[in-house]
Nucleic acid binder design. Structure first.
Lengths: 193, 193
DNA sequence: CCGGGAAATGAAACTTGTTCTAATCTGCTT
DNA sequence: AAGCAGATTAGAACAAGTTTCATTTCCCGG
């Protein structure tokens, strides 16, 4: 199962979503197709599992080195810049994961909702300038209602922008810029630039 | 070609994206598969063509009855409520179109970028409280830079929310609410509720 | 009326995600 | 050691998007 995910990630890094042919994944991980489908319901399911691990990594990185400097605007900008950078470092792989997020079947939608919560916790922490409590149960709500609304809204902007990036519509920097613009509008930055 | 789109829309209304089987589309529109692929590059291409027509319809509706009442916040909320309602009226069909938007190949990405511009023009018009100039060329920019940033940001929130709705994650009202929340944060509404 | 070329057709082939099946293997219990 | 349950395998089969191709139809200038 670890081998399955590793093989899928390996293929995704090389050629993106389409390159993750399940027959290849099965062969490269020394597993039969049937076994693969015992562990994962679909191709997207495998990549979402990988995405989950990436988010865990991001959680630990943010817990180890929280964005502390400056205003809320600066912290939010920095947080998403780091997150975007982490994705753009392996563009094909990131594209594959984003593609999996937009599959749109009810089955994976629930898993994505859970991922959203995890990220929202990180965003809210960055907004408040505190370290995220990554060991707390997911339904522990932090921040005021207003802070949660801000975090969620900027996450949505990030998601939209990432989808555009994944489709090849614009570059990594545009993603950071669009998020920063949104943060500026919400957090009353004078120079939206 | 009209027949092709009509057949695709008909099937999409009944069963969503998966129900649009190209063999069925071909049969229902009395056309061979090869002909279908002469006019459209892919399944998504057909549905994006339909989406384009929907946006045209929205343009005319907004030009005929522009949202004029109240504050910028109220106009924006009303605009997106109307847009969301128009989609939710034929949920399966809307899901299919949204699914096509997230396909993520470079080919369709450009078409989607053009659609974005069209909608952005409507949003900016709603923001300013003017009627959209739907006959002007698309690259005519209206509004200040700040207005364009606001329009674009709220569009991104709308898109994210629609993707969630299309995946069955939440109801139509949640889409309107999330957009309203974002508009409230940006346009300084006291009662974000 | 005729010939030529563009467009459409029908059908098969190919690809890849997903499912199914019969055979085999593995570890555990008695 | 025998036997059984459950996991695993190899491989076929199926579904649907996409491509290909030989043949037919259609239209139009001469």
């Amino acid at each position: 199962m670890r081998r399955i995910v590793d093989a899928a990630v390996d293929l995704a890094e090389k050629g993106g979503f389409e390159a993750v042919r399940l027959r290849d994944v099965a062969e490269q991980s020394d597993v039969a197709l049937g076994t693969l489908y015992k562990y994962f319901r679909s191709k997207e399911d495998i990549l979402l599992f990988a995405l989950n691990e990436e988010i865990e990594r991001l959680e630990h990185a943010m817990a180890a080195r929280p964005v502390a400097a400056g205003s809320a605007y600066e912290r939010i900008s920095d947080f998403f810049r780091r997150g975007t950078r982490a994705l753009a470092r392996r563009p094909q792989f990131a594209r594959a994961m984003i593609r999996s997020m937009t599959a749109g079947d009810a089955d994976t939608a629930l898993k994505i909702a859970a991922l959203q919560l995890r990220i929202a916790r990180l965003v809210t922490a960055a907004l408040r300038g505190t370290a995220p409590e990554i060991t707390a149960p997911l339904d522990t709500s932090i921040g005021t209602e207003r802070e949660q609304a801000i975090a969620f809204t900027i996450m949505q902007v990030w998601f939209s922008s990432l989808v555009g990036w994944a489709a090849g519509l614009h570059a990594e920097r545009v993603v950071s810029d669009q998020v920063r613009t949104a943060a500026g509008l919400i957090l009353h930055r004078p120079d939206t630039k």
